[in-house]
Amino acid sequence: MKLAQRVAVITGAGGGIGRAIAISLARRGCHLALADIDESGAKFTALQAREFGVRATWHQLDVASRDAVRAFPDTVRAAHGGVDILINNAGVALGGMFEQVSEEDFDWLMEINFHGVVRMTRAFLPVLKGSQQARIVNLSSIYGIISPPGQAAYSASKFAVRGFSNALRHELAGTNVGVTVVHPGGVNTAIAQNARLPAGAPPAEVERGRKIAQAMLRMPADQAGEIIVQGIERDRARILVGNDAKIVSLLERFAPVSYWNLLRKAIRA
């Protein structure tokens, strides 16, 4: 896929992987409609992207809002004329064992991580079908391949993104719209620090968990963004970001039930 003069919509573009993807696309001459619930973050990314001579707009958007997402394609078309690439990157994290996590927090995460992806896809698919060549790119996670304890909600949402993406790819086979699912490993973003935690969790336990999670987030976000954009250029159906994601994917394939016992031993070592 040639990215110059294309138009890409990116959610969660106010920082982290979303911002990195935006800058990698801008380097290739791709125009951008950047959405985030944090409008100031989206604006900062857009101003950075404009340094590469592309048209970049920023938009405040809550992907958990049905009405806001439904209206967003008209806003983007008014600014850019059309859309060639939709990148569903917006996401949140929620730690804690299933019995600790409230129903409200579980639903909050699913509304953003999964239903937000579905809403955006439903809203933009008719627009994408008007492009000569289009692609939907959905961000899952390494936790959309494996399911560690303490990640029941997050892993459920990312497995759902994976399943939705794969089924959608099969449904759209032979059309002008391709579908890519992305599984990042440990990418150095603020997601661990910003994760929502169960009410009443002991502060010492919370801090320990955050330190462990942050230590696993090693790959710079700009490197992850470049890997993802290269995968889009190559029309990849699946993109594994980082050696950790690649190793875990192989381990899960060969030991689909017992992989966690092997990983737990490796982590303790």
Rank of each mutant, 00 (worst) to 15 (best):
M1L: 05
A4V: 10
V9A: 12
I10L: 14
I23W: 03
L25Q: 00
A26C: 05
R28H: 00
G29A: 06
A33C: 14
I37G: 04
S40C: 06
Q48L: 13
A49N: 02
A49K: 01
R55P: 06
Q60M: 12
R77N: 12
H80T: 13
L86G: 08
A90L: 12
A90T: 09
A90S: 09
L94N: 08
M97L: 14
Q100T: 05
E111M: 09
V117H: 03
R119W: 09
T121G: 13
R122F: 01
Q132T: 14
N138L: 14
S141G: 11
I146H: 06
P149V: 04
K158V: 15
V161E: 03
V161N: 02
R162I: 02
R169F: 12
H170M: 12
E171C: 04
L172Q: 05
T180G: 09
G185V: 08
G185N: 08
G185H: 05
A192H: 10
A199P: 00
G200P: 04
P203L: 03
E205C: 02
E205K: 00
R208F: 02
G209Q: 09
A213W: 07
Q214F: 05
M216A: 15
L217P: 09
M219L: 14
A221C: 07
G225F: 02
E233Y: 02
R234I: 04
D235I: 08
N243K: 03
S249K: 04
Y259C: 04
I267R: 09
I267V: 14
